[in-house]
């Protein structure tokens, strides 16, 4: 008599089912769900949603003469600053650099990802692991490594001098920033590209060759269109973060190459123009949101 039995005296009162009972039960389940979610929910509202709201409020506020912020009069002054030539230059420079970084990553990654996808399983796995190692190592350190390499007494300069190219100073130029961005972003292009190329039925390429297509035609008309999801996903994963990059330009760039991320930070730390910083942060987030929506729309969910 150890099993749970239906001995009436033991059992909690059970009744016939009614729609009211069903409703009550589903409400109880819903309450349990909410209860589980509540700690994280409350935390995120307090320490994420509220801060986001504060940034929004600040973006409509005015800077006062002492570098403080006047929260009373709401206006679009800070957003109007986006049209300012200095800010516009920074926006365009950031945009241009992000686009260029994305294109370079795509051109470098595509043949690499294709080569990887056509290897045998063992080689493929080894190749993949070696893409992931730099990807998991500390981001700050990876950027710093380039600073060591490109510095004025760094290895790159020494080599360039030794082979007679003269003293080449790359550090603190836009090129250095771009190298850093490409370096940091490359795995994010390689992985989705690889995933989408690997998924393609490679006998399609055979079929294309059988139907008299040249190698290039096959690439253009078969391979590339079919790997489009990976191209889109990779491009967004590279473009969006590059646009808001802060650490890389700070370490590898110079005063003449201020980008959006650094400019925002400057508004808060030195220029003391918080409304402008807040409005730019908001613009950056909007770009990110649009890109994310595009990303999910194109089925990038399970990348």
């Amino acid at each position: 008599m150890t099993m749970v039995t239906v001995r009436p005296e033991e059992q909690e009162a059970a009744a016939a089912a009614t729609p009211e009972y069903e409703k009550a039960a589903s409400r109880a389940a819903s309450r349990r769900g909410l209860l589980l979610a509540l700690p994280a929910y409350a935390y995120l509202v307090l320490f994420f949603a509220v801060p986001l709201g504060i940034v929004m409020i600040y973006s409509f506020a005015t800077r006062n003469r002492f570098g403080g912020t006047d929260l009373s009069g709401w206006n679009l002054e800070a957003y109007r600053k986006l049209g300012d030539p200095i800010v516009r230059d920074i926006l365009f420079r950031s945009l241009w650099l992000a686009i260029l970084t994305t294109l370079i990553c795509l051109v470098v990654s595509y043949p690499f990802a294709y080569f990887m996808a056509t290897r045998g399983p063992v080689v493929r796995n080894v190749m993949l692991i070696f893409v992931m190692i730099p990807f998991w190592t500390n981001f700050l350190v990876r950027n710093y490594a380039w600073r060591v390499l490109l510095g004025n007494d760094g290895l790159f300069t020494n080599i360039s001098e030794a082979i007679g190219l003269g003293e080449r100073e790359l550090l603190f130029t836009t090129s250095a920033v771009m190298i850093g961005l490409v370096y940091g972003s490359l795995p994010f292009m390689v992985l989705p590209l690889y995933a989408s190329i690997e998924r393609i039925d490679l006998s399609l390429i055979e079929a294309s060759r059988d139907l008299y297509a040249s190698g290039f035609q096959t690439l253009r008309r078969i391979l590339f269109p079919l790997s489009m999801p990976g191209v889109i996903a990779g491009s967004i994963l590279v473009f969006v973060p590059s646009l808001g990059a802060y650490v890389t330009p700070e370490i590898l760039g110079g005063a003449k190459t201020t980008l959006l991320g650094s400019y925002i930070v400057t508004q808060f730390l030195t220029a003391r123009n918080w409304p402008v910083g807040a409005s730019l942060s908001f613009v950056l987030m909007a770009v990110m949101l649009v890109a994310t929506v595009v990303y999910f729309r194109t089925g990038g969910r399970n990348l």
Binding site: M3, V4, V6, P8, Q11, A14, A16, A25
Partner: peptide, 12 residues
């Protein structure tokens, strides 16, 4: 015994 609303872990 009525069991319509009994949870699964209380049913024989």
């Amino acid at each position: 015994d009525e069991a319509a609303t009994l949870p699964p872990n209380k049913r024989p």
